[in-house]
């Protein structure tokens, strides 16, 4: 019996990252720009996707992947009801989507027809940040009722963001949410982060977001 040390040096999420790379290629080949949408449960992810569809639907074909820990199709049904293709992925209790799950979801969508793919990740502020899906940008929705201290408590997810959306601004009069304090925390973690304040209830701020997104879609078509 001999004891040997075997050099490994392999990223623990290597398998996930390789599949993420394949997803990115599949999305690029299909010409679909993609967003990994993260947030706490109930922050308004599905509401925001519906508002985005409403704003862009005349000229942008949008596909949606809905991640949920339970085998329900509530969110995907809402997207299908407004005439866009959506698939529901049940993570089987896992707290996040991973690249393999997204790959399975992509296979059920008419990718070549889709201009914009939105992935609604599982409602969670910790785990989704660790798993690359192969999407083009990371977007977080922070909603007013969650409180103004979330950047300080969940720094990791803020560090990796490309866009931040502050939702439920219609509730600002009823909740003690110090916008300055919140934004200061964000600025410490991700200086200059592109941020939109919106209300999916009143529609406030959705136009500015939709304009920005149109710009990103146009830019991604050029490369």
């Amino acid at each position: 019996m001999t004891v040997n040390r075997v050099q490994v040096v392999e990223n623990i999420l290597n398998a996930n990252d390789q599949v993420a790379q394949l997803n990115r290629q599949a999305l690029d080949n299909a010409g679909a720009f993609s967003i990994n949408l993260m947030a706490s449960p109930g922050a308004g992810k599905t509401s925001f996707i519906l508002k985005t569809i409403q704003a862009l639907r005349t000229d942008v074909k949008i596909g949606v992947v809905e991640g949920d820990t339970a085998p329900v199709t509530i969110d995907a049904d809402k997207i299908n009801a407004v005439g866009m293709p959506a698939v529901q992925i049940n993570t089987g209790g896992e707290c996040h989507l991973d690249a393999v799950m997204l790959k399975a979801g992509l296979q059920q969508l008419p990718l070549p027809e889709i201009d914009l793919l939105i992935v609604e990740n599982v409602g969670n502020l910790i785990c989704p940040a660790a798993f690359d899906l192969g999407t083009h940008i990371n977007l977080l929705i922070a909603s007013i009722p969650e409180g103004d201290d979330k950047p300080y408590k969940y720094p990791n997810i803020y560090r990796g963001l490309d866009v931040l959306v502050i939702n439920k601004t219609d509730l600002l009069p009823y909740i003690d949410f110090r916008m300055d304090y919140f934004r200061q925390g964000v600025e410490m973690l991700n200086p200059g982060l592109t941020t939109f304040a919106v209300s999916c209830k009143t529609g406030e701020g959705i136009d500015a977001w939709a304009d920005w997104l149109r710009g990103r879609l146009a830019a991604s078509r050029q490369v």
Partner: peptide, 20 residues
Amino acid sequence: YRLTVAAGDEFYMESIEVEK
């Protein structure tokens, strides 16, 4: 606050010890 991570985001398996 314009900082980037120089170390601390590692997440890998360095080696294993095995019996033959």
